[in-house]
Structures are given as structure tokens and as C-alpha cells.
Computed example of a mutant assay.
Amino acid sequence: MGERNEEVIATCASRALGNLQDSSRWGAALDTLVATCHDGQTNEQVIAVCRQLADAETTADWNAGTERDLPHWQRLLALIDKLASLPRPVRRLLVPLYEGLIECLQSQDTMKPSVIKLQLAMTDWSNTDGAVASLNTVIAMVDGQPYLLDYAYHQVARVVNDSKGYWKPEGLLELVDRLNAQPQLASSYIGLSLLKIAGKALLWNEASADRLRAYRNHEHEIIRMMALNLWTVVE
């Protein structure tokens, strides 16, 4: 598919996705739009329709209505989910797209879960410094907010597990140490998510078990409780 053709197709798909009056074609349009963005040539169209959906006003008929309910919100979340779930090699090419989408959405508090999802989607787990920086962006959003913190915990686990082959468990342990050395509760909380994956990959060797023991003596009760429910061997 030529670059120009991709742009034309993406423009048409974006128009259909953003047409909230039409409830029948948006699913196919969404799939088409995502298919055109794999090489990063249609970022502009994707960001534009994302902004359009994010800024759409909720009408009375489409707010817990009998036939339609928040169509703009449902389409936006579906778009973000598909983009964040692309294969790792594709996601590496789409960092500028993810950054543009985050810039578009980050001013809206209710979009924080989507911003977290996009931030983690472009994280390189094999680059410790880069991963710490990326996670610190997430930690700043979720610290002190239990729902978002729990969401981030599980999202980190999902993304890292889906990226197997692109990181080493020893590298994840280094990430755990870096996060646990930071003062925020959220840092240790997210670190425990990574420790669970690294420990399993390392068959809970002494290095990973040592870190689990340290978590079980953590200053924060919630961290101790979670660590006590993570086991190296099931009885």
C-alpha cells in the first residue's frame, strides 16, 4: 500500500469513525484506521479523530439512553485499546503517535487510564533507565489514587507479560530495585507487579526471593499485605 493511499484510506476511516450519527460502520472504520497506522505515516489522522472523539459533547439522548450510550467515549476507548495492543515491533515505530495521543488526552482526568495504557505501550522494558522514566510518569498520575494505582499494577503486568522475549528477568529485578528505592508508595506497588513476573521467570531463585522477603517487611501495610499473598511455592 502506497504512502498516499494509506493517508487517503486513513482520512476516510477517520471520518466514518468520527461520524457519531452512523452507528453501523464505525467498527470496520476503526479496524481500517488501525491497519493503516502501522508504519507511522497516518499519525496525523489518528490523533485528529482521537481529539474529535475526546472533545465531543455528551447529548441527553446518548447519556445512558435506551438506544445509544456515550458513543464517542466507547469509540475512543476502543481506538486506544487497539493501538496499545499492537505487536511490540509495531509499537516501537509508533512512539510519536503515542506521544501525540497522550498530549491530546492528558488534560482530561477521566482519560488517565487511557494515558497510562499508552505510556506503558511505548515503554522499552529492556532499557532500565528508559523504563524507570516511563514508569515514573505513570507513578506521578496514580500515587494517592487507589483505583488508578490498581489499574496501573495490572496493566504493567499485562504489558510486560505480552512483551516476553523483549526483556530479561534480571533486568526486571533491577527495575524493581530502582522503583523500591523511591519514596512513593506507588513505586513499590508497581515494583511488586514486576517482581511477580521476574520471580516466576527465574523460578524464584535467591535473588528474586530476597526481594520478596524485603517487600514482606515494607514500611507500608498495603505492600506487606500484597507481598504476603505472593508465593514462591503453592502449598
Rank of each mutant, 00 (worst) to 15 (best):
D31W: 04
G130I: 14
R92N: 12
P87W: 01
A152S: 15
W26S: 05
V34P: 00
I102G: 00
V95D: 02
R224C: 13
T11D: 15
T32N: 03
T11P: 01
Q106C: 05
M226I: 04
V34E: 00
W26M: 08
T36Q: 12
V8R: 09
S85E: 06
V160H: 00
A29N: 06
L173G: 05
G199T: 10
T36W: 03
N217P: 02
R178A: 11
M225P: 01
N217T: 10
G165T: 07
T137C: 09
W73E: 14
Q52D: 02
W26P: 02
R4Q: 15
T110Q: 11
E170L: 10
D150K: 15
L212F: 02
D150A: 12
L230K: 11
S85K: 05
D39P: 04
S23T: 14
T66A: 08
V159F: 06
D39M: 09
D162A: 14
Q106V: 03
Y98Q: 07
T58C: 14
A207D: 11
Y215Q: 04
A78R: 15
E3L: 04
R15Q: 11
N19A: 11
G40H: 07
Y189Q: 10
L30W: 04
E67S: 09
C50K: 01
E99A: 10
A201M: 11
P113A: 08
N161S: 05
L120N: 01
S134F: 08
V142T: 07
D150S: 12
I197A: 00
P71N: 13
A186H: 00
C50T: 14
R213S: 14
L149F: 00
L53F: 08
G65N: 12
A181D: 13
I102K: 06
Q108K: 09
V49Q: 00
E174I: 11
N19Y: 08
W125P: 07
S193Q: 02
V156C: 03
A48Q: 09
A29M: 10
N5A: 15
A209W: 01
T137H: 06
N127M: 10
L135G: 06
S14M: 07
P146A: 15
D124T: 10
I116K: 06
G27F: 09
K168H: 12
V142S: 01
M1G: 13
L149T: 12
K112C: 03
